[in-house]
Amino acid sequence: MTENSPTARRHDLPPDAYRDMTRILRAGLITALVILSGGVIAYLVENGSLSFGEMVAKNPILSYLGLDSLARGLSTGQPEAFLTLGVLVLVATPIARVLTGMYFFARNREREMAIVAMTVAILLFVGVLVIGPFLR
């Protein structure tokens, strides 16, 4: 075996890493789609008479981006709040996948790759939770 051989030195991630990442992506996607589907049906029931242009101009998401307003909207059954929640679940899915990767690299004692995954997670949190709201 040479130094450049593809089989040299790498510790393959365990099969459950692949399995869990697949499950997380599927669970996040299915959850988001179920919420979005229910939300859009409820929205159409309430706002079906709107024109397409009016719907585009009246983007409801900005009213529900805060935790308080989102919780209030969900508790009162506002379709727009459920649509917002569906979008947020979709956005959170890749973050969950990165965190899962970090866990498996750490469990596999691959310190450098665990640091790589942690760096990606930190950058994502900074982008979503700090820079986004800062530009708002």
Binding site: V91, L123, G127, V128, I131, G132, L135
Partner: peptide, 10 residues
Amino acid sequence: CASTGVLLAA
């Protein structure tokens, strides 16, 4: 996901 945080807020 990284860009959506900014686009959502905007």
